[in-house]
Amino acid sequence: MAASSNEPVKLVLYVAGETPKSLAAIRNLEKICSEHLAGKYRVEVIDLKKQPQLAREHGIVAIPTLVKELPVPIRKIIGDLSDTQKVLVHLSVEE
């Protein structure tokens, strides 16, 4: 895909502490990235428990939330990312 050719995918995952949902989301995201987006992504995990002001700044309501900031358009996925295919569709980064 054109989008995935040169620009790296920037993903930010917002979690709140080490809840089962947060941990599951981190695990699922790591799996998706390594299996489908190898080398083409940057992932940042933000714990809102530690930086609640970022929730306001980025307009986060639900936890966990995955935000694809780059390339545009911005996409948000909430939930524990348990459905890999759906995640890829919404990120529009499937191979």
Binding site: R75, I77, I78, G79, K86
Partner: peptide
């Protein structure tokens, strides 16, 4: 612009 995939809660709302 939001998709729901899997289980979630509104903890971020509470935090905010």
């Amino acid at each position: 612009e939001v998709a729901e995939i899997g289980d979630y809660d509104l903890e971020a709302l509470f935090l905010r």
